[in-house]
Design a protein around this nucleic acid. Structure first.
Lengths: 124, 124
DNA sequence: AATTAAAGATTACAGCTGTAGTCAAATAAT
DNA sequence: ATTATTTGACTACAGCTGTAATCTTTAATT
């Protein structure tokens, strides 16, 4: 699995919003939340290319970046390894921790029920 | 929040198994799964002390290490920040990803149902 | 008492990370 | 055409990480 740092992931996330995207578009998208210098973001874009998370095509002197992986695929793999490391691969203890510390809303519960329901339907 | 690297967490996890624990006990506990050199583990123990994750008391020339945080507390904080970063703070999409990719067993589902049930009871 | 062994402290070192600055080439502006 | 600007490439640098080796002190052995 491609290993990305937190900062790299946030930049990739900005590309996932809509792509292909140029460096300046990515910089624009990140400008609200982040205090990053333009150069910083460009460095991170380069590192993402080097790591194989982004590809690009030249459009004149600009680069048009496109993710090499789907967000869902990446987050799933990260989730798996997270749950493996912290909870021995079991997901319920993670959810349980949220529940115990009042981190769950009724909406979360409803969503979880739906996931369970869909799963059960899937099993026929 | 104390930031720990993966390797540091694994060493701390070995201390959580039973503590206070000496360095050689920790080394022993890790010897099955890990190929780590004794020196490596001692380095990680020192770094955990420096980061405030472990404290120790001298017992003669040995150190007896004790965690400064509970495992549940640490994993909860990590879970929160994980879910925040990858799923905008919502837990259901994480579970949903597991479901879609056939990562859930009937047992996981049963455990999740129990968590939901307990939560609902809690809300009276 | 002298020697050896073991524990922790200190040092090492390359690769990753956050966070840019500088440089060279291409383009836009005058 | 010349100059200024913008883009991406390359360079920088300290702190974190993985992975130990060496040094110092203290305890165990002979």
């Amino acid at each position: 699995m491609i290993e990305l740092s937190k900062a790299e992931f946030e930049v990739l996330d900005a590309v996932w919003l809509d792509y292909p995207a140029t460096a300046s578009q990515v910089i624009e998208r990140l400008s609200d939340d982040k205090e990053w210098h333009e150069k910083t973001i460009k460095t991170l874009l380069s590192r993402l290319v080097k790591k194989g998370a982004l590809s690009f095509e030249k459009q004149g002197r600009l680069y048009n970046y496109t993710p090499c992986i789907a967000r869902e695929e990446y987050t799933l793999k990260e989730s798996q390894s997270f749950v493996e490391r912290f909870f021995n691969g079991r997901i319920a203890p993670l959810v349980s921790g949220f529940a115990k510390s009042e981190q769950l809303s009724q909406n979360d519960i409803d969503e979880l029920k739906k996931v369970i329901n869909d799963w059960e339907k899937q099993q026929k």
